[in-house]
């Protein structure tokens, strides 16, 4: 009794509730589909993240080792490199992807051509090759990093989206639809009861009317004596046109 909407039990309200129910059921189906699609994408991303992280581990290790080799051959070149940079040569572009209605960001690495030339001469006197090799190793590491970053943000966003969608699905499933169904059952119940009452009232009224008619016939009989028609005559007097119809003999 508490788990239904408070409303006036009329037919229009019933129709409205029915409409709402169909809406809720359809919404539930659609949201379920959305949740499934998101979960699928989620799992794909998860797999890719695991893969990328492992690769990342390997690449960073290789990068660190390349740095060691470069330090071995060229000595301390860190400050030279730091001081020959003017502007960043690697930048990140952010774009939006749409997955089943959820907007997830995607990052892309963009190489601007800046300050490439000065870098090429680092370690000119000794170890230049190792420095360039180290540079390449870290470039691949940066690429992987950007990819990993976009995968991880997608992961987080999707996680949120899946949670909300599931929440909505569950809410629809366990709260809204039962409530609506209960309301409809209640309204129907009320309407039936009203109908029954009406029927009962009708019957009662008919019984009353018959009683009143019988009383009247009895009084007429008493007043007019026995009629040629007898009781029937009284009835005929009361109901003219009764005789005129010949009995139908088959």
């Amino acid at each position: 009794m508490s788990n239904r909407y408070v409303c006036v039990p009329t037919v229009t309200v019933l129709a409205m509730m029915k409409a709402r129910l169909t809406g809720a059921v359809k919404g539930h189906a659609l949201l379920k589909k959305k949740a499934d699609a998101l979960t699928l994408r989620f799992r794909q991303i998860l797999k890719k993240i695991v893969q990328t992280k492992q690769e990342m581990g390997k690449t960073m290790r290789a990068g660190a080792f390349a740095l060691t080799e470069a330090k071995y051959a060229a000595g301390e070149f860190a400050t030279t490199v730091l001081d020959s940079v003017e502007s960043a040569s690697v930048r990140v572009n952010a774009q939006q992807d749409n997955v089943a209605g959820v907007k997830i960001p995607r990052f892309e690495r963009v190489m601007t051509g800046a300050s490439d030339t000065k870098m090429h001469l680092t370690g000119l006197g000794k170890g230049g090759q190792q420095v360039q090799y180290c540079r390449k190793a870290y470039m691949t590491a940066v690429e992987l990093l950007v990819e990993l970053a976009s995968l991880q943000t997608a992961f987080l966003t999707l996680d949120e989206a899946i949670k909300t969608t599931n929440r909505r699905v569950n809410a629809l499933d366990n709260v809204v639809i039962p409530k609506l169904e209960n309301t409809i059952a209640y309204i129907k119940g009320e309407l039936d009861e009203l109908e029954r009452e009406e029927f009962f009232r009708l019957k009662k009224v008919q019984a009353n009317k018959r009683k009143v008619a019988d009383e009247l016939v009895k009084r007429r009989l008493r007043e007019n004596g026995p009629t040629p028609n007898g009781a029937k005559g009284a009835l005929h007097d009361m109901m003219p046109g009764v005789d005129q119809d010949a009995d139908i003999v088959f």
Binding site: T117, H120, L121, G123, L124, G125, K126, G127, G128, Q129, Q132
Partner: peptide
């Protein structure tokens, strides 16, 4: 001579 070798090797393909 070692420096000459390194300079040559490291400046291939650069603006030097």
């Amino acid at each position: 001579d070692r420096r000459a070798l390194n300079i040559t090797l490291n400046s291939i393909g650069t603006e030097l």
